[in-house]
Design a protein around this nucleic acid. Structure first.
Lengths: 340, 340
DNA sequence: GTGAAAGCGCTAACAC
DNA sequence: GTGTTAGCGCTTTCAC
């Protein structure tokens, strides 16, 4: 009882074969006779033997582990993505080694070192912006990287995102069609490409229709800070009649302030639109109009891209932007000619 | 550019020392002269060398990886716990290898095999019930296990939970003091100890006051199923005037149905109480009365217990039940003599 | 304090 | 097809 892990040598002895025969039985695509295989399998079963994947990885150079670097799980989009990523990778024989990084503190270098120490075959960075220098370190270590829900200028990096620019534009179009004139925007953390792209698309959509932003505050993608942004924007006479909030998580905070602190009616006094379509957005308490991020597709593309880069070192970096639909719910006024 | 990972031999050559000298520089508590250490560190820095922890683990027998088996992240309590667990373990030099398991399908055996293949030093099972047979397998492999937010009869397993029985009782007391007479319960998945303990405490609290359950339905810890449970329980003349829902996640579903489908007032027509105190419970849209699970303490105890069991093979299994306070908010009627 | 040598558990050449 | 051998990158005796 306890501790004594079984090795291939013990199995070999018991089966009356060589140690390498045992190895072959457990190695994909090695040639063994059925007879030997049976003997070995029987002995392995009896002893409870399973190959040590760490020892194997030392030789093959593949650990079958994927590092996942993630900054915060507060926004429900990320746990959902993590679950899907983990499941998808598990189905491909990979497993996820999690590293929590704090975007703000400069501990990303240290965390990256730790990741590389574990000889991961690839790296997914979710909700994390990566500097060119860090990217170069991964490159040097031969570890492919895919950014998930973040984009970066560096051409050598693969990235999978929603089409945030198109999403922002859709929201602008929708709010204008609904007859809004004083349209506000509550921004996320300025270091995030999602923030920048959503705002850029939104502004260009407004501009194309001859409108411009009526008010702007920032909520840093945090619930409390989004509440304060909403207070600053709405606790006065002249306030917006519509607001696009850079993600759902903050949109909930904004709705809470508008309805429960300021006594405003949504969408009677003000329309609110978010971005992500997390499950909570569909619950009747919020019933939030939002742009859907197609998490399943994003995950599938991320895994596909990463595995391609692992298998062919010279595979081209891919940048995928997945378009998501605007999901119209009760938090926003509808255009007159709206049909559905 | 690409792939060529640096080994200790290369560093040794460059520093003009033996390979074992290099090893000693990077090994905790090995004796090296400052002079050698400096030479080696310099060479390592120049080449970008870092020890391969997988190769190290082959010798030391410690991978410094902790397997985390988790069934679902839908309930926000779990992502929050995962983030805290990962951070706490990271601070101790360990990292989390994630395995998603489906409680229902019988794939837990397969998943456990995969975990053990990676030579994890310990195993945390969150939101997962483990059979005695599986526990025995871990025991045999010498891998300590701690159950997180689950309990089990098996004496050899460590487990960290809230004091769910006491929590359930607190809720019963509170609802009775508030003058409720028709008190319902919406259960979680029956296979979970959290479900059983919360219900047991709740029932015994009612019983001690001469009350009994007025209605009972099950929601399986799922949002949609909890909605249906609420419909079954409340869409009729004779309905409860209070309901305890086995966790917050389901309580939100129940509140949504009561308010938006059935037009009931909370707490005017019915009081709702949950369990967990996830962040959303404090948001004004729900403002849910609930028993707090002290996630930080649970995580700290889990890590402490696990590391103790890793360091001393013969450490006793520990069972920790952490008491959490009832957080009274607006979803429930208050007792007349309530002061705060 | 330091280098030489053994070996962790395994895979992959290599002969037969 | 099978056993023998080398060696993945590292830690840890063991002499000196």
């Amino acid at each position: 009882m306890g501790g004594a892990r079984v090795t291939s040598i013990q199995v070999a002895k018991r089966a009356g074969v060589s140690q390498s025969a045992v190895s072959r039985v457990f190695t994909q695509g090695a040639s063994v006779s059925k007879k030997t295989a049976d003997k070995v399998k029987k002995a392995a079963e009896e002893l409870g033997y399973r190959p040590n994947v760490l020892a194997r990885s030392l030789i093959t150079g593949k650990s079958h582990m994927i590092g996942l670097m993630v900054a915060y799980l507060e926004n429900y989009f990320y746990p959902e993505a993590l679950e899907k990523l983990s499941n998808a990778l598990q189905a491909e024989g990979y497993h996820v080694l999690v590293f929590m990084a704090e975007q703000t503190t400069g501990n990303m270098d240290k965390v990256l070192d730790e990741i590389l120490d574990y000889q991961v075959d690839g790296l997914i960075m979710a909700s994390v912006a990566i500097s060119s220098e860090l990217a170069a370190r991964c490159q040097a270590a031969g570890v492919p990287v895919v950014l998930f829900n973040r984009n970066q200028d560096d051409e050598r990096l693969s990235a999978v995102t929603s089409d945030n620019v198109a999403g922002g534009r859709k929201i602008a179009d929708f709010l204008i069609r609904a007859g809004h004139h004083r349209i506000g925007y509550i921004a996320g953390w300025e270091g995030a490409s999602t923030q920048r792209d959503r705002e850029a698309g939104f502004r260009s959509g407004l501009q194309d229709a001859g409108h411009e932003l009526y008010a702007r505050e920032t909520g840093e993608f945090q619930y409390e800070q989004a509440q304060e942004a909403a207070r600053r924007m709405f606790d006065k006479k002249e306030r917006p009649d519509a607001v696009f909030v850079a993600n759902d998580h903050m949109a909930f905070a904004v709705m809470d302030v508008l309805r429960f602190e300021l006594g405003l009616d949504i969408p009677g006094d003000v329309s609110v639109v978010g971005f992500d379509d997390v499950p909570l957005a569909a619950w009747p308490a919020y019933d939030l109009t939002t742009v859907r991020q197609r998490a399943n597709q994003m995950v599938a593309e991320t895994v596909r891209t990463l595995l391609a880069n692992i298998e062919h070192r010279d595979a081209e970096p891919r940048r995928v932007a997945i378009e998501g639909p605007l999901i119209v719910r009760g938090s926003s006024r509808k255009p007159k000619d709206w049909s559905e």
